[in-house]
Design a protein around this nucleic acid. Structure first.
Lengths: 148, 148
DNA sequence: TATAATTATGATAATCGTTATCATAATATC
DNA sequence: GATATTATGATAACGATTATCATAATTATA
């Protein structure tokens, strides 16, 4: 866990009057050092390696705390499963998702962002947030597919 | 139900060897004549008016058939609830969603579409589909809010 | 138009991801 | 170290959706 993220987490726990549970800390460490859009289930599997007796509830609770202090964000994708992404040090971005291997690529395009703002205005909406998910087949999977 | 949509549905049912159940037909009619992004629960409520004994299962089954013949599409939004949108006579579009009243506006922006295609290419992805949801506050709700 | 075969329907159980509850363990405060 | 409070794990509950099963409706067959 990078020092800044650790400080944010510790401050949040102190400020909320929580105590420092070993599992929660450990799960947070695993999450923050895994640069992936993990689902609760995936994070649980990783946590099990370190804490064989860990419960799903603890994983969900740890994720809730991480979201609470702004270190992560819950994203629900089309399969109905929530995945959690890092927020610290990650500017707003959209997602390119490979439908074969499930890889996530964080992308941004300022021109698209500007056009979205215009789109809000054109329809008299006050912009709040947006979400763009681009589904396709990544280079690696495309090559593999052509080779088969 | 507009004639073309009815034909599509009837053909699909015939081709699959299904029978013509009254409730399914009625639910399809309600769905197709309601130009909204209905959830299963909302459609169930509407169906109940016509068929007081109708079951949730029948609503879900009707929606499955409608999706099967391409008349509708399931979209899962951030609240985890699936909503169903009309496909017939609806070009590809994105969604402007009012976070106050829940209104859906279907929008398209060719410039954004083109930039998305470029984004795919830039990252060596073969484009398949995309999804853009724009969340904000609509004109009506914005005015109401200012008046309060 | 009976009858047989098959699908549609409604009630309800099961499922899946997630959240709540509760008893116990760990941590913090005094 | 005693006390209070949170953390944890086991498990029950939850909401949305799907599966199962008995019965009703529809279609095919005679």
């Amino acid at each position: 866990m990078r020092p800044k993220e650790e400080i944010i987490l510790e401050n949040y726990i102190a400020e909320k009057g929580f105590k420092r549970g070993a599992q929660r800390k450990g799960i947070a460490e695993i999450f923050l050092s895994t640069e992936k859009h993990l689902s609760a289930e995936e994070l649980y599997a990783l946590a099990k390696k370190k804490y064989p007796s860990v419960s799903f509830a603890t994983v969900y609770r740890a994720l809730k705390v991480l979201c609470g202090c702004g270190l992560c964000r819950e994203l629900r994708f089309d399969d109905g499963v929530s995945r959690y992404e890092h927020l610290y040090g990650h500017e707003h971005h959209d997602h390119l998702i490979c439908t074969v291997c499930g890889r996530f690529v964080e992308v941004t395009d300022n021109a698209i962002e500007r056009l979205q703002t215009k789109l809000f205005k054109r329809h008299d909406f006050i912009p709040q947030r947006h979400r763009l998910d681009l589904y396709g087949i990544c280079d690696k999977c495309g090559k593999k597919r052509r080779a088969d």
